[in-house]
Amino acid sequence: MPTGVHIRDVREQLFDAAERILLRDGPHALTSRAVTAEAGCAKGVLHRHFADFDGFLAELVLDRIGRIEDQGVNLREAAGTGTVAGNLTDALTAVFESVAVAIVGLVTFRDDLRARLRQARPGGGVPVLGEATTAIASYLTAERDRGRIAAGADVDTLAPTLIGAAHLLFADRESGPPEAETVRKVVTTVLAGAKQEPPRDT
């Protein structure tokens, strides 16, 4: 009987392999055989740990969602430090330089996966993007409470606007990721009416 640590190691090995395939070849190339080959595992390993391939993919998406939620906690704790634009630039880059964009494509590509995620995520929304939006909104609320953005700032509009704009920047995999300054320019533009920084930071 494998230990719990061993099971976690195998899961993470398979998840990392699936992520590499997604980023390199796109969702159409993601099969159980491709994942085990990429991970250097025997063909039956995946099905020993997951009921079926869509179950594996659902667990992959939920695992990556968990990482974004952890990043959201760290972002909220950063409120009041650094600059608002800098914090958001770093946070958006961390989300979209990961597998986030590819996961959105994967969920769009597989009907059964969408159905499983709807069951696992009662709140609905686009997986990964929904959680990232919630994290950004929570951070903006914390900064608004500290007076670093305007008291009247509509964080429920600003957050999805930032996520949507960043998603477009990072979606073009052919050209590579945007420069940090490009992401920062989008952030400062979206927050222009929200008094994003003290004068010394503009």
Results as ranks from 00 to 15, higher is better:
L62R: 15
A180M: 07
G105T: 08
L75S: 01
A17P: 12
G4P: 14
A94K: 13
G66A: 02
L46T: 00
V10G: 10
A192Y: 07
A137S: 10
L22T: 05
A17L: 08
N74E: 15
A58R: 13
V5G: 12
P198D: 11
A39Y: 03
S175E: 12
E69R: 15
D145P: 02
R11H: 14
P27W: 08
R48P: 03
A180W: 08
D172T: 01
S98N: 05
Q119C: 11
L23K: 01
L129S: 09
T3G: 04
D9H: 02
L106F: 03
L62P: 09
G44Q: 13
K43Q: 14
S138A: 15
G123W: 05
T36R: 05
E131A: 13
A153V: 00
T182W: 04
L92N: 05
L88P: 00
V128R: 01
R146T: 10
T133N: 03
G152K: 12
D111Y: 01
S175P: 06
E19A: 10
L191T: 04
G72H: 02
T202Y: 10
T81Y: 09
Y139F: 09
R20G: 04
D25P: 00
R8L: 09
E181F: 08
R121H: 14
I163H: 00
L30P: 03
A159T: 04
T108H: 14
F53E: 08
Q13Y: 03
A166C: 09
V186S: 15
A100Y: 00
R76M: 08
A34N: 11
L158C: 06
R110M: 10
T108S: 15
L60E: 02
R48C: 03
A166I: 14
R67C: 10
N87L: 10
A79Y: 01
L62S: 10
A79K: 05
V104T: 07
G105C: 07
L140V: 01
D154V: 06
I68C: 01
F109S: 05
I149K: 09
R24W: 05
I163A: 01
L22C: 10
E77A: 15
L191H: 10
A165F: 11
P177V: 01
P198C: 06
L168W: 11
G66Y: 05
A132Q: 08
L22S: 09
T89H: 05
I21M: 00
V104C: 01
G40W: 00
A79H: 07
F53T: 03
E143W: 05
L117R: 03
R33N: 06
L106A: 06
E12L: 07
E181N: 09
D54L: 04
K195D: 15
K195M: 13
Q13A: 12
I65V: 13
S32W: 14
Q119M: 08
T157A: 03
A132N: 06
A165N: 04
L169E: 08
V101K: 07
E12I: 06
A79T: 09
A120G: 15
V190R: 10
A180E: 14
K195E: 11
G130C: 08
R148G: 02
T36I: 01
P199W: 13
F53Y: 08
P177L: 11
G125N: 03
V84T: 14
G72C: 01
L88D: 07
V84F: 06
L140P: 00
G176I: 06
P198W: 09
